[in-house]
Amino acid sequence: MIWYIARRIIYLIPTLLIISVIAFAVIQLPPGDFLASLISKAEETVDQAQVDALRERYGLDEPIYVQYWKWISGIITRGDFGDSFEWNRPVSDLIWERLGLTMVISLFTLAFVWIVSIPIGIYSAVKKYTIGDYLVTIIGFIGLAIPNFLLALVLMYIAFRYFGQSVGGLFSPEYIEADWSLERVLDLLSHLWLPVIILGTAGTAALIRVMRANLLDELSKLYVDAARARGLSELKLLFKYPVRVALNPLVSAMAWIFPALVSGSAITSIVLNLQTTGPLLYRSLQAQDMYLAGSLILLVSVLTIIGTLVSDILLAWIDPRIQLQ
């Protein structure tokens, strides 16, 4: 097992490298030298010495690979992601809490997706071709077809129109800027349900279908008959064997569900005005605040890669066949 994990982590290195290159490319993509745009935006005249210091720091006069090297080595050795020009603060000051909240939302959504989709998937497979199964299938398809942001808009409209409530945000106004405390955590939890449902709908619909298909596959396998021939009751049989085996692909589905959640939360967060990475990335892209944008893309990607790694390890842990390969 330890070897397996070690191998997976080594595999990660080229992935991380590629991600960092992509993120760096995003930083470099906008035409022109960003210092120039910085200077043009600045209200007061900029001190020439300061500009030279920045040039030196980011290696702007040097070849592109040197710039990349300066950037990435700064991140790895010092946790220095560069400065946000719009906020006039180091990027690292701005991102960690937002990254944490992104993580919290994604994990809660993942839990929601699993808790809802597994029992429904089992029901749908065991009762296949019944009205209940058709209903689940149709609702699932609709869940897959509604874009997150549209669902967010519709739910917000319903809440506004029929309950006179303005939903959105992750905190009540009094807690937005407050320090972390038990009350703030509780406040967060009470706001979490809406984004979790919105983000989780598509994933839940997808996983129900995966679970149903897998379970149908497994139900017709010989080992199920063999266990039945041993005298096991239908319910115990169902949960001990086919459901257990059908869970494996579900765990491996986490490898794409998690990136999809993080990805989807970007847009949903913008619509619902959540304090996650999404809106910050959006604003930074519009303001061409490229170090902030690049860092966000880098970190969000790393986050999903770690999610994928965790799902791989989990899968190896529950499926003894994996480690052998």
């Binding site: 080992y223 064997y241 257990r244």
Partner: peptide, 12 residues
């Protein structure tokens, strides 16, 4: 059964 491989659970 005929196929001892598939008659045994792969994960037990």
């Amino acid at each position: 059964f005929q196929e001892p491989m598939s008659a045994l659970s792969p994960v037990h």
